[in-house]
Amino acid sequence: MQILKQAIAGTLESSDLMVKVAPSADDALEVIVHSEVIKQFGAQIRKVVDDTLRQLDVRAGSIVIEDKGALDCVIRARVQTAVLRAADASQPNWEKLS
């Protein structure tokens, strides 16, 4: 899936996260995770984000995450939503999102 425009999803409230997605200038994929629980769960958050991006076949773009201690399923859902918005996907492939 191609990131065509900027998009956001989520909130900054506790147990949620805000995901900001933007096209990249140089076709690279850059993921930045900021979290209040980065020391305990940083690696796990990063893994969920990377897996979700791979599932969506996102190979280029800038993904910035402000995490407020969200559960894995919430992280996955927010990343999916932000990417779908940024890719202008009106007909998402729901099977790929499971």
Partner: peptide, 21 residues
């Protein structure tokens, strides 16, 4: 924390709706 974080979320969301990221 709770009100201020919601407020900032709302304003960031509003900015996005208006095309400002």
């Amino acid at each position: 924390e709770s009100l201020s974080l919601r407020l900032v979320s709302e304003v960031v969301q509003l900015a996005a709706e208006r095309g400002h990221f």
